[in-house]
Amino acid sequence: MEKEERMQENNENMSRRDFLLYTMGAWATVGVGYALYAMYKTWEPLPEVMAQATVEFDLSTVKPGELKVISWRGKPVFILHKTEDMNECPNRTVAGHYTVVIGVCTHLGCIPNWEADKKIWHCPCHGGEYDACGVNIFGPPPRPLDIPPFKLKGNVIVLGEEGPEYKKMISG
């Protein structure tokens, strides 16, 4: 009789201990989870970096035949207002007149220079050439210059957001 009572007491104690153990375990898991989340968040780009994620630029400020270079996410973006004597490429032309490409050679990441007399981009590193559409026409580059994701708001181009024109260009 006495033995049974003791056992019952023991069982009760065990379940109480288990309850405390599980509670503590669950609580610690929540704590560790939050700590890991905080550590994860500290490695995210700072607000000042995220501010560079999108860049707005007024296309109408580029005169016909002119090239402007702007910086987007640490990379140069070429904006060329094409004239009629340049190659036509409807699926690579933004807002009817503009070539908008990331100015990083697709070969090894050098920055090609615009040669206005020949109307080509010439890469100083290995002699790759791109026409006014940014399509590789000579040398080692494996593909045309990349087009950055963009959205159009009238004359203003927003780099870093995918608008319907960009999606159409990529799928077409």
Partner: peptide
């Protein structure tokens, strides 16, 4: 990649981490 670098390219945050 952006999370590891803390930036779109390798930059100051990448160096410090």
């Amino acid at each position: 990649v952006i999370w590891i670098r803390g930036h779109f390219i390798v930059e100051d945050p990448t160096l410090t981490r």
